[in-house]
Design a protein around this nucleic acid. Sequence first.
RNA 1: GGGCGGGUAGCUCAGUACGGACAGAGCAUCAGCCCCCUAAGCUGGUGGUCGUGGGUUCAAAUCCCACCCCGCCCGCCA
Length: 649
Amino acid sequence: MVSENPFAVFHSECEKTLADALKKLFPKIQITNLALEKPPTSEFGQLASSLCFELAKQVAEKPFALAKRLVESMDKKQFHLIEYIVPAGAGYINFHLDFGKFSALTIESVKEFDTDYGFVKVEKPLKIIVEHTSVNPLHPIHIGQARNPVLGDTIARLLSARGHSVYRHYYIDDVGRQTSVVAFGYDKLGKPKPDTKPDHFIGPIYTITSCLIEIDRLKKELKRAKTVQAEEEIIKINRELDEWVAISAELESKYPQLFGQLLDKISEDEDPENAVNKLNKAYEEGETKAKNLVREVGTLCFEGFRQTLNRIGVSYDSWDWESDFVLGGHVAEVMQKLKKSPYVFMQNRVWEFNAEEVAQKLNLKAKLGLKEDYKIPSLTLARSDGTTLYTTRDIAYTLWKFQKAQKVVNVIGMEQALAQLQLKIALYALGFAEYADNLIHFAYNLVSLPGYRMSSRRGRYITFDEVMDEAVKRAYDEVSKRSPQLSNEEKQKIADFVGIGAVRYALAEVDPAKPVVFTWDRVLNFETNSAPYIQYTHARACSILRKAAKKPEKPSYETLKEKVEHEIVLSLASFPDAFAEATEYLKPSMIADFANALSDKFNTFYNALPVIKAESQELSDARLALVDVVRIVLRNALNLIGIVAPEKM
RNA sequence: GGGCGGGUAGCUCAGUACGGACAGAGCAUCAGCCCCCUAAGCUGGUGGUCGUGGGUUCAAAUCCCACCCCGCCCGCCA
């Protein structure tokens, strides 16, 4: 007998036994929640019910006495996976597994389902778009942003394994003003060919150009403020100016040649800020020259992004240019529809979307988890020069996504929570309530550097490429230390998946809601609770199987009597539930935790009990089978979070 | 000022959605383990007012209320 979810078989057996007993003793009492949960230690069995505490209130009897009576009334002949049931504590009912049978069920099930074990399918598969990363094409992806592709890709893998049709989209935000800034600088330099990785080449151009324009703007503002003697403003501008001048000095010493070139060229311009705005407007209007220029820079950057992401196992089904939605008229169409709705008004010569009014009229606040007296800020839809703003464009993009999918998950930093809320409310306002309900903002917290926030505008960041390079380098040192006998080529290969795996694990393992301060030793961990630890455990399992050099012929699973063996079996059997929960609640970290916990148990087992040289052939075969299924589950879990499961390391 | 998120061992974090049995790991630190299938490992010790104060409950890290600290957002940026 096999099952795609062995623990669920036990669970439903307990449920039925308990429900039957309840019905027999208290036919009139209705209790819907049987309160079955996993007890803290195996001493209390593998499932327990605290229902007697609740029941006690209704029947005026002590919880423990109730537990005792219920247990006594149970029909032991019906037991299959249950070995025995006991009342315990102050009134718990503890269900103990018959591990002889349960080990057989679990091990056979894992073997049978193999590469698909654990991945229980959803009843109604959906088409789901996961939009993630969507870093602007201005500079290399930095470590602060790197949390996004890792989380996004892992979510996509989870949903896909769950049976959904998943499409990974990258939204190329090429319309924003910043894109025009970098294009402006690039143009000033005479569109140079990159002499390094293209995104690393573009990065400093953006930062320096942005800095020079900012200084120019502030100087002009200062002049204006001085003519009207606005003292407070002058102080404020001066402070800002000081900061930017300091940044420019930093940039000049870092990139002397490039800085000089850009300074010369940009100073030639009377009003660089205005030139950028003009470029931005021309781009939105689809003017050929502007379009070619901006797309050229964007494409260069993306070539670099593709390389970076590919290295960590992240790929996309679609790269969506934001400008296509502007040029294709989708954004204008949305604007038209919104203006026709009663929720858009004119203020200071621009159109504003009254999200607050929509929420009130359509009674959305409770549904969206907002306090009734919270006033949702309005959203400005376009600039006074007619160019569009980010969230407005995102509405058009979102509508497009829903033509292709029933559910959309946007992996976007939590700092954009308000914009995402306004976007959702706009969908309701336009009459697309069903879309709004199926739009999920998967928010994650910021990654900062010790002492300060990463800032691409200020050129303060550590690139994702650097982090991976460093991780692989350190992994190489580790491999050389631990396995000096390997060839250089082998060492390099191992260092690669260990280093990259460590980075991926470190970013996926922490709850996305937590803020993260980046430090090297946080990411480059090769000990317990890291990808290398789990990879090592997998390799150890493979090593035993290799050394045994045979299939288990007649395993006798009843011989697996050690506590740690039972714990392993239980863990394996719980993988399908862990997977389903991780997927339903979009919690990639649960898979990492699961794999780590299973590794802990396996290593304890490895250290304490011989497999190949076990006391008897039956036991040896049973343990061999156990090792094999641990290997399968570790591999499946690692694959789910995009980490290589190596046979040797 | 308002909104959102976070606050658990010296450090990094699980656990909070659905309240349950003495709050779990890792790092650091201390003491041990390669006779044996990979020591990137294992065993044991030290270490906790679960931000604070109330409340609900047989039972609260978990639910409710108030407050404190940190971060983010409230832009004709994205």
